[in-house]
Amino acid sequence: MAEDILLTNLRFSGYILSAILIPMATIILGRKLYKEKSITGTFNHVKLITFSIFVCFSIMSILELIVEMNWFPFLDEIFGFNIDSVNLYSILIGTMVSLGLTLIFYANRFEVLYYSALMFFMGMIFFYYFTGFDAWLESYIYLAGATSLIFMYITSFRIKDNGALGLAIFYTLVFSVLLLSMPYITQIIILAYNGFIPIFSLGFFKPFKQEVE
């Protein structure tokens, strides 16, 4: 009984923290991005992609909290909470992993592939609405997620980029939640990435002292 209460408390604290901290981190990143844009005149594409990933994650965190609290019951079905069929949750996760791949393509300057992952994923969604076929969605999310994760680590060490490494760690934590549905461990990981996000977004995460330009 005590264990159940502890688990429920951990779960809800995780959701509340995510719903507060992730949107805040997104706002901080957005402000940084806008500031840079006003100085240079153009958007830094890598930062823009990172910001987009955070926007998706913010929407997801807020909706997760709303659904868990059962504030709007009609959202339950739309949100879905699973990645084996097309719903708001899987669309957001899919967009995040596709953006992860886009980030790698941008970082490595594979110009031909810049929008490929996003176009492929959008095609998948359209395809579902026209044919009702979504059997490959889960496989795509896992495959694209794993690929972006591996290459994000490789890229971050290759170009010594703090942002990419931070994002790779963040992705690792998020994917661990997706893969491991074990009580306590999942909740601890959620708390861990909630602790990591402020460090990352405020720019305190700097394992590479000298970044490669």
Binding site: Y115, G123, F126, F130
Partner: peptide, 22 residues
């Protein structure tokens, strides 16, 4: 439009798959 080079292949892929299913 170098960034869109893969678009024709992606569209053809989905349309072919769509034709197989429907």
């Amino acid at each position: 439009l170098i960034k869109l080079y893969t678009l024709p292949f992606i569209i053809a892929f989905y349309l072919i798959l769509g034709n197989i299913l429907v």
